[in-house]
Amino acid sequence: MDRASRYKIRRTLGRVAFRAYCALSYIFLLSPMVVVIGTSLNGPKASTDASFQFPPENISLHWYARIPEAQIEALALSFALAGIVAVLACILGVPAALGLVRSNLPGKALISTVFRAPLQIPSIVTGIAFLQLFYLIGDLTGVYWQGTLFGLVLGHVFVATPYVVGTVTAVLQRFDMRLEEAALIHGASRWRAFRRVTLPVIMPGVYAGGLYAFMVSFGDVPIAIFLTAPGFVTYPVELFTALENDFDPSIMASASMVIFLCLILLLAVQKLVGLDTLLRTGGGGGR
């Protein structure tokens, strides 16, 4: 066999191996979702245990009609909470990142470590710390923040902001300062230069950070479990409680529903800001 055909065979084998590897990764990542969605499609059964079958039997949307009201309410709260947290994390995180990248403060390294601290503290510790803090404040002022939206927002913004700081810092470090200088020299004030040039250019980083913040808040159990109150519960905490108490396949239906909702949300974000902004800012200054 000549060298060229040997090479051809090796290349074909390599390609097959690579595709198999990719396929395995996808299976690994997607299988939990497939099992959850699959199980949720079981039809009504004699016993609860029999309803947790995969692959499902008598496919129906039976359990979707039986999602408890409390879970729907919790879901609404979680979406609202995550939305508020994402916005507030951006409002706090963008100036923080600007300060970290632009200033030449002494102790910049220390400050940036402090900003990352919430990521290093186990969430359960953060949760307890906030609960204690709220008790303390409550005992002093008579206003208790645990079990209020405000309290939850506070706890989640604390852990979500570092993500925004991280992504925005990354885009700011690549930001060409001459763009801002060009805005200034052509008549823009510092604020206008930021509004019309800097902010739009770093926006992909802000969106990415905002999305992280949203997901951190939306998926959080360890903090929220301390800061919610009966009748005022986030979706993951509600599911957690449901799994502990009355375990039935409606949980699978409920989880599947959320998977779909998040998928739609992500696609919408992608469509609205993702691809378009990323492509344009990646284009550089006319090269």
Binding site: D176, E181, A188, P200
Partner: peptide
């Protein structure tokens, strides 16, 4: 006087056109 009040025009190295 800050640059925005000097009424100067400037062409930058690599142009620095606003990409967005």
């Amino acid at each position: 006087l800050p640059p925005q009040h000097r009424e100067i025009g400037m062409v930058f190295q690599d142009y620095a056109l606003f990409p967005h």
